[in-house]
Design a protein around this nucleic acid. Structure first.
Lengths: 188, 188, 188, 188
DNA sequence: AATGAATGAGTGTTCATTCAT
DNA sequence: AATGAATGAACACTCATTCAT
């Protein structure tokens, strides 16, 4: 997990909030500065450019998410299907909780091509793949291509959150998404 | 299906191309005009603003897509699981084929709130829901909430396309996505 | 008096109306065209440019005004003080009646330097000067510099109209302006 | 009197100069910026828009003028006819001195309807009216409607300046204008 | 003669970025 | 380190003018 100073954190929080509400080009750095209670120049002490700030926001969100999921995986006592359920639930809650994070999972997977990003992406996929493999090994799951399946589960969750019908609450959504994923994996 | 004049079509094609390659704020209207071989002012004869043009591009892509899928649905002789497979495959190929279309399904579902858009969104969902319902009626599918499932299938496809691992070709992707969706629906 | 074709007249009327309501740069030729029920291109059949149209509007108004006043002057039976009263009254009513004409008398006197304009300006001044001179000759007026006085009487009227206090009607305004002018001229 | 920062003053001076030489739509903000030795963006730190700058220029000129005239009024020792002469002379010199100021008195009285403007206008009129009233009280002037007379004296001066014949100098103009005004007011 | 779709030079305005304090 | 006034490159958008019909 990357570390951030107190001021960096405040800036990132503010920016995350604003980028979540509007597209990139409608977010003004002066708004970010004002909302974060720092001078406009201060932003440039921490981030090279507007784009740099944008990606920093996304990366931090992604980093936090992956870290959380890794904690689930490390609980070796939990059976794979429960782990997967927990991961799905956590992904859903995380995305659902902060509007930024919806956009996040959309861009995150494609745009930035630095090592930092590739690595983090691989961590997420590896983590899900690992759960599926364990499930297959234990005879709970059936999946010929766990690597592939792992890759679109995050997107599936994102979709479920984005396209949820009005009036359906987060619990219901989670349950349905879990069912859907598990039905696609559980051994007959 | 909305109709477009020859010149409108040329502008939309050009803009679609450019918006696919760069984010909104990096696309210049002067570039669009030059590439479409029209004067800059001409853009404004057909579209109120840059944003208007952007959404028009997205809408047209969406419109085309939905229209194509409706043709599949109207073939009453085709069994529901084949219809769903065809829809998934078509969605995947459409998205995969043009970079704009990836962005499309992301934005399309959330941003614009005009009647035109809501209506088109509903058409897409209704269409998929209808296939699932037929499948359930014929005892091929099992799904307690077809309306909900219908809502995230498009997102699922998008994810599969976005997150596809390097070097895997479109056919494989489609097949896997179809399997996944069908396993989630087929009656045991 | 310059002659204008039926269509030219319609364009000038419309333009006069619009230029009266807004400053030059806020009047669009497309608005003029629409309001005059002619094509935009048609304007250019009659006027070389936007500026040309603008000055044509002003000139016509000026021309009409001067022509009307000359009719007063030509009535040799009328005593000079009555003539002056009539001139003042006519100027006031003319300006008051159409908003364009207020602006008109402001610009008219300074801007255009063509022969056509200089000539028309001189006609107006000559006409008033002539009345004053007659008055002086008949011992009704007293004025050492009738040429100078003639030059600012039109402006005075304009001021009276522009700066009239709310709720005072045109008749009152005219009377007051007449009094003021006559007091400045009448022999003690 | 409104206060202006050093930079604001420089911008206003420059703009006043340019607006005096050309009509509004021919003055480019980039020219104003260059001539004032500031960045184009700086203009927008002080003025909301081009129009705002324009009116600010006019207002400052008006403000300066009224302030100067109020100094004349406050000299209680000066008899009313001398005060009026001084006011007329000052108005004339002010207008005559800067081309902007001609435009100024034309627009100033009608266009802007903000409180700031109405108030300043009222100050000017009140000031002249007060002089007339004093004159009437002292038996020097005769005027049934001082409020009305006050309203068109500024316009009269403007006319005298605008319509002055070629080759007549400012002194002569002033004298004539003073005579004219005083003849209209002096008790027989 | 009449039109109005098409044009693109021209301009007001914005906003990321810098730098003197 | 922190600031925010100043900047000017960059861009969306306008609108007088043209010209094919």
């Amino acid at each position: 997990m990357k570390e951030y100073s107190e001021k960096e954190t405040r800036i990132l929080d503010t920016a995350a909030d604003l980028f979540a509400k509007q597209p990139f080009h409608k977010v003004l750095l002066s708004d970010v500065a004002r909302a974060a209670s720092v001078g406009k120049g201060t932003l440039y002490l921490y981030f090279k450019s507007k784009e740099d700030l944008y990606f920093a926001v996304l990366f931090r969100g992604f980093d936090v998410l992956v870290d959380r999921l890794q904690k689930i995986l490390s609980d070796k006592a939990m059976p794979p299907d429960e782990q997967l359920t927990a991961v799905v639930r956590d992904l859903a809650e995380h995305i659902y909780g902060k509007a930024t994070n919806v956009e996040l999972l959309g861009v995150v997977m494609t745009c930035p091509t630095t090592d930092e990003w590739s690595q983090k992406r691989r961590e997420l996929w590896a983590l899900i793949e690992e759960i599926i493999r364990r499930g297959v090994a234990q005879g709970v799951f059936e999946d010929a291509t766990p690597a592939l399946t792992a890759k679109y589960i995050p997107g599936l969750i994102r979709s479920v959150c984005l396209f949820k019908p009005e009036g359906v609450d987060i619990k219901t959504i989670c349950n349905h998404a879990c069912d859907f994923v598990l039905r696609g994996l559980k051994k007959a």
